[in-house]
């Protein structure tokens, strides 16, 4: 008989209030509730978090390598969206 493999979950942790949840790794669990508990046991042993998200890995839809040209390259020629594009006179430099 094939070995039962539990579902794969991705774990995101907010390390302190005011910060974003950050991806820290994955784990196996039966369901969301158990995944949260294991995330607590496996990824916050040193008080690394104040909040945990778990997401089924299979629910993540990721952009593909072959899409990256049409997804990301078009922003390359729009430097005017960045503050550094604009030269200001020295006296008002900190705008």
């Amino acid at each position: 008989m094939a070995d039962s493999q539990l579902e794969l979950f991705e774990v995101f942790i907010r390390s302190k209030r005011g910060l974003d949840h950050k991806h820290v790794g994955s784990l196996h669990a039966q369901d969301h509730a158990q995944a949260l508990e294991y995330a607590r046991d496996c990824y916050t042993r040193r008080s690394e978090g104040v909040s945990i998200w778990v997401v089924k890995s299979s629910d993540i839809c990721a952009s593909q390598e072959e899409d990256s040209e049409c997804f990301f390259d078009p922003s390359d020629d729009k430097p005017y969206r960045l503050a550094g594009y604009y030269r200001l006179p020295d006296p008002v430099d900190n705008m």
């Binding site: 070995d3 493999q5 794969l8 790794g25 994955s26 784990l27 196996h28 496996c42 042993r45």
Partner: peptide
């Protein structure tokens, strides 16, 4: 106990990294 538990944790982080290559832990 905390140390040996960490070894298990590190095993988990690494299996987790290896699983991103498409091979299940089992």
């Amino acid at each position: 106990l905390a140390k040996v538990q960490d070894e298990a944790g590190h095993g988990l982080y690494l299996y987790s990294a290896a699983e991103t290559l498409g091979t299940p832990r089992s």
